[in-house]
Every structure is written in C-alpha cells, then in structure tokens.
Simulated assay, not measured.
Amino acid sequence: MNVNLGTNLFVLLVIVGVAVATYQDALSRGWDGGSAILMAIGVCFGPLVFFPIYLFNKNKPTRRKIALAVSRSIARQSRESDKDITIDALEIAREIGVSKPEIVRELLYQSEAQGELPTGVRII
C-alpha cells in the first residue's frame, strides 16, 4: 500500500512540475498570463492531451506579436527615410514583453528564411 502512495505522489509532483515549467516557458515566449495559466491547468489535469498541444503551439502567440511589432517598425522606418530597414530583436522583445530577445531573434530568422519579411530587411 505504501509503494502505491509513494508512486502516486511522485507522479503527481512530476505532473505539477511540468505544469509549472509549461507556465514559465509560455510566459517567456510572450504568451499573455491568462493563456499561460489555462495551458498550465490543462497540462496539470490532462497532461497526455495538453502537453503535446502546448509543444505544437508554443511559438504561435509570440509569432503573431512579433509580426505586428515588426510591421509597426517597418512602417515607422519607411516614413522616416529611404534608408535600409533594420529590425532590432531586443527592441521588439521589449515591445512585446518577451524576456529573452534570443527567442525573438530566432523567430525573426525563421521568418526571413520562409520569405515572410521584405527583401533587404536587416535583423540585429
């Protein structure tokens, strides 16, 4: 009987740990707090369903926010002059509230590779 209790407690602690890690990862990727909490609750109560869903969708909200911020930056730079357009990943990360600019930079490079950014845009 004690072995089952110990095993159940261990599994429960692992699931709660994964839910907390999911919440923290979602926040660091730019998810809003409510969405991160809902996903963590889903992972806690249905880990076999919600954790794979999170892994598949974890970059999507950040991509949307980055795309909007990049569009604003390009529009602002286009109005200012005819110079080369530069996208600063650190500036975009601050604007959308992502704590790790390297995530934003990686997503920008992916967008550039997929042809989603205008030609000649420089990422710094």
Rank of each mutant, 00 (worst) to 15 (best):
N2K: 15
N2M: 14
V3I: 15
L5N: 11
G6E: 15
G6L: 15
T7Y: 14
N8Y: 15
L9G: 09
L9H: 10
L9W: 13
V11D: 08
L12A: 15
L13C: 12
L13V: 13
V14S: 05
V16L: 15
V16E: 12
V16W: 14
G17S: 09
V18K: 05
V18Q: 07
A19R: 07
A19K: 06
V20H: 07
V20S: 09
T22Y: 08
Y23K: 03
Y23W: 14
Q24L: 15
D25C: 07
D25K: 12
S28G: 05
S28W: 06
R29V: 06
R29E: 04
R29G: 01
G30K: 06
G30Y: 09
W31E: 02
D32F: 14
G33T: 12
G33L: 12
G34R: 10
S35A: 11
S35M: 13
S35V: 05
A36M: 08
A36T: 06
A36E: 06
M39C: 03
M39K: 01
M39F: 05
A40D: 02
I41T: 04
I41C: 02
G42M: 06
G42L: 04
G42P: 03
C44T: 09
G46K: 10
L48V: 11
L48Q: 07
V49Q: 05
F50R: 03
P52D: 02
I53N: 07
Y54P: 02
Y54W: 15
L55T: 06
L55W: 10
F56V: 13
N57K: 10
N57T: 12
T62F: 09
T62W: 07
T62E: 13
R63D: 06
R63H: 03
A67S: 14
L68E: 13
A69H: 05
A69W: 09
V70M: 02
V70A: 01
R72F: 10
R72I: 09
S73E: 08
S73P: 02
S78F: 13
S78Q: 12
S81Q: 11
D82C: 06
D82K: 11
K83W: 07
K83L: 11
K83G: 05
K83A: 11
D84H: 12
T86L: 14
I87N: 00
I87M: 01
I87R: 00
I87K: 00
D88P: 04
D88N: 14
A89L: 08
A89H: 09
A89P: 05
L90M: 07
L90D: 02
A93P: 04
R94H: 02
I96M: 08
G97D: 03
G97H: 03
G97M: 05
S99C: 08
S99P: 04
K100N: 13
P101W: 08
P101F: 08
P101D: 02
E102W: 06
E102R: 05
I103Q: 01
I103S: 01
E106F: 11
L107W: 07
L108K: 00
Q110G: 02
Q110E: 11
S111D: 12
E112G: 00
Q114Y: 12
Q114M: 13
L117H: 01
L117R: 00
P118K: 01
T119Q: 13
V121K: 00
V121L: 01
R122P: 01
R122E: 07
I123Q: 00
I124K: 09
